[in-house]
């Protein structure tokens, strides 16, 4: 089962071998690298690991999702100060260590805001649920989107509503 199971972006880049996408998204996007995609599935190179000298792409902390995002017309990826820090969801951790979890999420959101992101995009719904919960409680205007929504051509959510 493991050998036949793929994460969406991994499937698109490695199996379908997508080279082009007919998708427009003319916005500044903050990409959140979810930990389990990054450090368990190895969708990209974690910032802690040092690349072999001849692999520049890995050194840039690039992931399979980055490759797809670069195919989207008009999309601008913003540069975060901490490219792959955990958002603090962590399953039961989110309630068991509520204070730390929320501070971690808050710090991630602030990083995306200072970078000028109009939306936070991630491969992992639970990270997004956590950060979105914090954002909505504070009545801030920073929508979140799953990568599948963006790649399917959805528009930027307005007023908390998904726009197909």
């Amino acid at each position: 089962m493991k050998s036949k199971t793929y994460e969406l972006c991994e499937f698109l880049t490695d199996v379908v071998q997508v080279e082009k996408l007919a998708v427009q998204f003319p916005h500044r996007v903050g990409y959140h690298q979810s930990c389990h995609g990054l450090r368990e599935l190895r969708l990209g190179a974690a910032s802690e690991l040092m690349p072999p000298p001849d692999d520049a792409a890995v050194g840039n902390n690039e992931s399979k999702t980055h490759r797809l995002l670069r195919m989207v017309e008009g999309l601008e990826l913003v540069t975060l100060e901490r490219s792959d820090e955990c958002c603090g969801f962590g399953g039961a951790f989110a309630v068991g260590e509520e204070a730390v979890s929320c501070m971690m999420g808050q710090d991630r959101i602030a990083d995306h805001q200072q970078a000028g992101a109009e939306v936070i995009v991630a491969n992992d719904m639970s990270c997004l649920m956590h950060m979105d919960g914090l954002i909505r409680r504070q009545k801030q205007n920073l929508p979140v989107m799953h990568i599948a929504e963006l790649l399917a051509g959805n528009k930027l959510p307005r007023n908390g509503k998904t726009q197909p």
Partner: peptide, 13 residues
Amino acid sequence: PFACSLCGSCTDV
């Protein structure tokens, strides 16, 4: 052991 979001950064560092 629960004071951890299992982000895995420690293992890679």
